[in-house]
């Protein structure tokens, strides 16, 4: 049952939202070794850095534990950290049941970014991961259909990488245009 449905009051409804510290402690009990930080970050979406290989495990706990109850993957995106030679993938999780929120972050190496898929946890992850693969080249292990989403299938390169260079032409269409002021 979803607390938000039918209820008129904002916020918690029948269940209580947990604050960051409580979420962090609960996670520490259930999968302690997977967390990289000693304390959670602050802000509206507190950041939680996770060991990349165990991110799916943490996510499963976050979704399935009744007290945590993150039933919605609100956003998934990647950031190319070129200077640190890694790509960070951020997962914004939200709970409609308890109305609390959290941001998971996992880093993968820039050369061959590999992370486990979330498609079996939240179907919303399907397209978000495809987009992340398309634009940043992160490969999600176990994704059922990891194809390009936005760019054409025959496109080369991942445009949101910081060192991406725009190709000169695409199927005979030049991608350069001279300034009209020079004419």
């Amino acid at each position: 049952m979803i607390a938000g449905s039918g209820g008129s009051g904002g916020g918690a409804g029948a269940s209580r939202a947990m604050d960051v510290q409580q979420i962090f402690e609960r996670l520490g009990q259930l999968c302690g070794g997977a967390l990289l930080d000693a304390a959670p970050g602050d802000g509206e979406w507190p950041r939680l850095n996770v060991v990349p290989t165990r991110v799916a495990e943490v996510a499963r706990v976050l979704r399935d534990d009744p007290a945590l109850g993150f039933d919605c993957l609100a956003n998934l995106t990647g950031v190319d950290l070129k200077s640190e030679d890694s790509i960070e993938v951020c997962y914004h999780l939200f709970s409609y049941r308890h109305r609390h929120q959290l941001m998971l972050a996992a880093r993968a190496s820039r050369g061959d970014p590999l992370l486990p898929t979330f498609t079996d946890l939240w179907p919303a992850a399907d397209w978000l991961e495809r987009e992340c693969f398309d634009l940043l080249g992160v490969r999600f292990i176990g994704h059922p259909d990891l194809r390009r989403l936005l760019m054409p299938e025959d496109w080369v390169g991942h445009p949101l990488r910081k060192d991406f260079i725009e190709p000169e032409e695409y199927h005979g269409i030049s991608t350069r245009r001279e300034s009209l002021l020079k004419l």
Binding site: I2, G4, S5, G6, G7, S8, D71, C72, L73, A74, Y96, W122, P123, A124
Partner: peptide, 18 residues
């Protein structure tokens, strides 16, 4: 609707008052 992360009127159409 929540699992697919529908939002706004699409989510509310399914009866979630958010």
């Amino acid at each position: 609707a929540i699992a697919y992360n529908l939002v706004g009127p699409n989510l509310r159409g399914s009866g979630v008052r958010y």
